[in-house]
Deep mutational scan, measured.
Amino acid sequence: SHFELRVGTITLHFDNISEELAEELEKLAKNGVHADEIRRWWEEWLK
């Protein structure tokens, strides 16, 4: 499923992401983690 995450002024787009993972990314964003860090985390997870 597709997921969009708003982090400050940036909107990150994720394809084929589980609800659980989407929730984890939302938690990171709410805790003030920068969009670049979240994207890096996601790319690492995909490997």
Rank of each mutant, 00 (worst) to 15 (best):
K47H: 13
D36M: 10
L12W: 04
L12F: 09
S18N: 08
E20D: 10
W41H: 11
V7Y: 03
H13P: 01
D36G: 08
E24D: 08
E37D: 12
I10Q: 08
R40L: 11
E23Q: 15
H2M: 05
I17E: 01
E24Y: 14
E37Y: 13
W45K: 09
I17A: 03
S18A: 05
A29F: 06
N31T: 13
N31A: 12
E19N: 13
G8E: 03
F14E: 00
W42H: 09
K27R: 11
K30Y: 11
E37K: 08
K47Y: 12
H13I: 14
T9G: 14
D15Y: 15
L25Q: 00
L46N: 11
W42Q: 03
G32C: 05
F14M: 02
L12P: 00
A35T: 04
R6K: 15
E37P: 03
W45A: 06
I17S: 01
E4W: 08
L46D: 05
T9Q: 13
R6E: 07
E24M: 11
V7F: 05
E24K: 13
E4I: 07
W41M: 11
W45H: 08
D15G: 09
S1L: 14
S18Y: 03
L12N: 00
S1F: 13
F3A: 00
H2A: 07
E23M: 14
H2D: 06
D15H: 15
E4N: 02
E44I: 13
T11A: 03
E37C: 07
T11L: 07
E19L: 13
E19F: 12
D36P: 07
L12M: 09
N31L: 13
E19M: 13
S18G: 07
I10L: 11
H13G: 03
L46A: 09
H13Q: 07
L28Y: 06
T9V: 08
D36Q: 12
R39F: 13
R40S: 09
E20G: 09
H34S: 15
E43H: 15
L28P: 00
N16C: 05
T11N: 03
E26A: 14
R39P: 01
V7G: 01
T9P: 11
T11H: 04
V33F: 13
E43S: 14
L5E: 00
A22Y: 10
A22L: 07
G8P: 00
T11C: 04
V7S: 02
W42I: 07
E19K: 14
W42D: 00
K47N: 11
E20I: 09
K30R: 11
R39I: 14
H2W: 10
N31V: 08
A22H: 04
N31D: 09
L21Q: 09
N16R: 04
E26Q: 14
R39E: 07
H13C: 07
E23N: 12
H2S: 09
T11V: 15
E26F: 14
L28A: 06
R6W: 05
L28K: 06
L21T: 09
E37F: 12
A35C: 03
L12E: 00
G32P: 04
S18F: 03
I38S: 02
H13A: 06
I17F: 02
N16V: 04
E4H: 06
D36I: 07
L12A: 00
G32A: 08
L46Q: 12
E19V: 13
N16F: 08
L5N: 00
V7A: 03
R6C: 05
L25G: 00
F3T: 01
L25K: 00
A22D: 01
E37S: 08
A22N: 02
N31R: 15
I38R: 01
E44F: 14
D36F: 09
D36H: 10
T9I: 09
K30F: 12
E37R: 07
R39Y: 13
E44V: 13
L5Y: 02
N31G: 10
I17C: 03
S18I: 03
L5T: 01
I17D: 01
E24A: 11
H13T: 11
E43P: 01
H34N: 13
E23F: 14
E24H: 11
E26M: 15
E4K: 02
E43L: 15
G8F: 07
H13R: 11
S1V: 12
K47M: 13
W41Y: 14
N16E: 04
E19A: 13
D36T: 09
K30P: 02
E44L: 15
T11Y: 06
I38M: 04
W42N: 02
F14K: 00
V7M: 06
T11I: 13
L21K: 05
T9F: 12
N31W: 12
K30H: 10
E19W: 14
K30A: 13
E20V: 08
D15E: 10
I38K: 01
W41F: 13
W42V: 09
R6T: 14
V33Y: 15
R6H: 14
H34I: 10
L5P: 00
E23Y: 14
E20Q: 12
N16L: 05
E4A: 02
N31M: 13
R40K: 11
H13D: 02
